[in-house]
């Protein structure tokens, strides 16, 4: 014990990035989870590298109704074909993916911040705080989700920020319930009692003693929710309530081109449909793998 690099033992939360890396390392044990993780990583990589990967401007009309694998007038190559307006589908899917992932991540993280705060308060303080928060959550959760989205978006208008707001509004009650349940369980642990008996504040206990121990189930749930938010953003686009055109989003691409599917141009609509399914599958498999791994340890 002569040379310890860490001279201060004060509790420090492990950096998030290290935790994520550790989680990925754990995934070695679950082939299904690893597959899911790879799919998700692939889409994130695609989103980040969109300017490099996408061959053309996603909104540039080049050659309408080109089938996959055909060439354009100036030697363009359409790996996945073009849509009815002549825009390259590969470019649109890649850029659309970036948009979907950006808003899904932003919305999920925001919803988590709200849900965690509410859940910790309700679960730790119980009593009327809990009943009030739970009642509000009950009211929101009593709406079928899509009905709620339609009502909110038609009221406040379709835009990226509004979609994020709607997702936070609709899904933070569910997160709050999970966090509340975990908190109710964790608050009975002796280490929480120990913190109380040494006079720690409620804030410290919630954030330092309870929250870090709830991370396992929350990470699993966050993966599932990322998938679900992806579905939702797509659904809003499909219903014409999504991100405003002409920038591509997957749901919008499906709805704009599906009338041409019967005329032999199914690729226009199938490509974004498969893309959204694959990404969601990735999130779901990843969540399943993480759950399996976290139960085992």
């Amino acid at each position: 014990m002569t040379d310890t690099t860490n001279n201060d033992y004060v509790a420090k939360p492990t950096p998030m990035i290290i935790q994520i890396l550790r989680g990925i390392a754990l995934l070695r044990e679950s082939p299904v989870g690893l597959l899911g993780g790879s799919i998700v990583a692939f889409f994130f990589l695609l989103a980040i590298l969109a300017p490099i990967v996408a061959p053309y401007d996603p909104n540039l009309p080049i050659l309408p109704f080109a089938l996959p694998g055909t060439e354009g007038p100036n030697g363009e190559y359409f790996l996945l074909g073009t849509d009815h307006l002549g825009r390259d589908i590969l470019s649109r899917v890649v850029w659309g993916g970036q948009r979907v992932l950006f808003y899904a991540t932003l919305a999920t993280i925001s919803a988590y911040i709200v849900g965690i705060i509410m859940g910790l308060l309700a679960g730790y303080y119980r009593g009327w705080v809990d009943e009030l928060i739970s009642f509000v959550a009950n009211v929101i959760l009593s709406f079928p989700v899509m009905v709620l989205y339609v009502l909110i978006i038609t009221q406040i208008g379709a835009s990226g920020a509004n979609i994020v707001f709607a997702v936070v509004f609709a899904s933070s009650p569910g997160i709050m319930r999970i966090v509340r349940g975990l908190t109710l369980d964790l608050r009975t642990r002796d280490y929480v009692a120990a913190a109380q008996t040494r006079g720690e504040s409620g804030l410290w206990i919630m954030l330092v003693e309870i929250l870090p121990n709830a991370r396992g189930p929350l990470i699993v749930d966050a993966c599932l929710r990322m998938g679900y938010t992806t579905i939702t953003i797509g659904a809003l686009g499909f219903l014409g309530l999504g991100l405003p055109p002409p920038d591509p989003d997957w749901g919008g691409m499906i709805t704009q081109t599906r009338s041409f599917a019967g005329a032999g141009f199914a690729h226009m609509t199938l490509v974004p449909a498969l893309a959204v399914s694959l990404l969601v599958l990735g999130f779901n498999l990843l969540a399943d793998g993480l759950r399996e791994v976290s139960i085992r340890d």
Partner: peptide
């Protein structure tokens, strides 16, 4: 508070699994 402390029953519950031993004792000292 420091003059009246407690040893708890369940060894698996008495320490917070998310923090190091030193961190937890250090917090008490501070």
């Amino acid at each position: 508070i420091g003059s009246l402390q407690m040893v708890f029953q369940n060894p698996n519950d008495t320490l917070n699994p998310s923090h190091t031993v030193g961190g937890q004792i250090g917090r008490v000292l501070r």
